[in-house]
């Protein structure tokens, strides 16, 4: 307990200047013949944020925003090209395998597809027990069995389900199994990469509720990645908005929905269908997401931004404090963007 208290001040996760560059060049011979240079894709561009213990930070963005790439780097499935990730004050990337195993016990991930995330040839009990066994959390087979039963119960499945194979379950039940696996090594931090986007709405509600209950019960910290703002609103304490690999705004969740600052955030909010039928007309959004291999100059959002001017086309915006958080926008910095009428 004292260790926790001592570290309460430090955020659980600190990400600074994280970038990820992919080489998307054509094969060497094609480049030689077609006289094309190497091509690089900056999937994640100088992203920094913190996650405090027990909170849920959500990252929202559309396709190509780099949100899944960030998730992969955080859990060590992908090496960052630049930048650092500190987990509880310790660097995430270490070459000492003992230290790495200790770190790995503390974080886990829930994946998008409940169909691809469970090995179809493994029994459910083996799937759930794997992290426990591999990370050496539990060695005695009777205890492992007991823990698997307990985890199945925790996600509202029965102990008898352990001896079945994944294909015998529906999508929602499979996602419960995936959650049980993620909890198996008793982690503190869970990265959730679009955990409900492959599920139907009524099942999505079950899974989101379950994830919130587990957070309260076990004191989990979540990084929640989604493209769906209404889901994010339901889950997150704080929200970061990504556009073309860069964070454009971070803000407290309620504030973001009440008073979005960055024009892209406003546009995203405008695009959410109006289910209350309040008669609010969705604003027509201009254009589509540009090709990330050739991003626009300056602020990458400028071709679609109604407030863009010469400076936006030229200069990459830096972080500006706003009333609700931080945003990367020249317009916000110069206070030339009108107050929003987002009062809901």
């Amino acid at each position: 307990m004292s260790k926790v208290a001592a570290k309460a001040a430090t955020p659980l996760l600190q990400v600074s200047d994280l970038s990820c560059v992919f080489d998307v060049s054509k094969p060497w011979l094609n480049r030689l013949i077609e006289r094309e240079p190497k091509q690089f894709l900056r999937a994640v561009d100088n992203v920094s944020f913190e996650i405090r213990k027990g909170e849920t930070l959500a990252l929202v963005g559309e396709s190509g925003s780099g949100k899944s790439t960030i998730a992969k780097m955080l859990v060590g499935l992908l090496d960052p090209s630049e930048g650092t990730i500190l987990f509880d004050g310790e660097p995430m990337i270490t070459h000492s395998s003992d230290r790495m195993t200790e770190l790995r016990k503390r974080f886990q991930m829930i994946f998008q597809s409940p169909y691809a995330s469970l090995n179809p040839r493994w029994k459910v009990a083996d799937v759930i027990a794997e992290p426990m066994i591999v990370l050496g959390v539990e060695k005695d087979s009777a205890k492992i069995q007991a823990r698997v039963d307990e985890l199945l119960d925790l996600v509202s499945l029965s102990a008898a389900d352990g001896s079945k194979f994944p294909h015998e379950f529906s999508g929602g039940q499979r996602q419960r199994i995936a959650i049980a696996r993620a909890l198996s090594s008793s982690p503190e931090f869970i990265v959730c990469d679009e955990p409900t986007s492959a599920l139907d709405v009524s099942v999505q509600a079950q899974i989101l509720n379950l994830m919130r209950d587990l957070q309260d019960q076990l004191g989990l910290t979540y990084l929640f990645i989604s493209h769906d703002l209404s889901v994010v609103r339901h889950m997150a304490n704080r929200i970061g908005v990504l556009y073309l690999g860069a964070l454009v705004e971070i803000s407290d969740s309620k504030e973001l929905f009440r008073a979005p600052q960055h024009p892209y955030t406003r546009m995203l909010l405008d695009a959410v269908p109006d289910l209350e039928m309040t008669g609010r007309k969705r604003k027509e959004v201009e254009g589509e997401i540009p090709n990330p291999i050739n991003p626009p100059s300056g602020c990458t959002f400028h071709p679609r931004c109604p407030f863009a001017n010469e400076r936006c086309r030229r200069e990459v915006p830096r972080w500006t404090r706003t009333k609700t958080g931080v945003a990367a926008c020249h317009g916000v910095e110069e206070s030339r963007i009108p107050e929003t009428e987002m009062a809901r």
Binding site: R104, S117, N119, P131
Partner: peptide, 26 residues
Amino acid sequence: NKEYVQAAKLIGRKPMAIMLKHILPN
């Protein structure tokens, strides 16, 4: 590239174990 293999990598399974226990049966 399937997510169950990523889940195994995440907990630090060695490539040999992933190949033999996860991929080969499939």
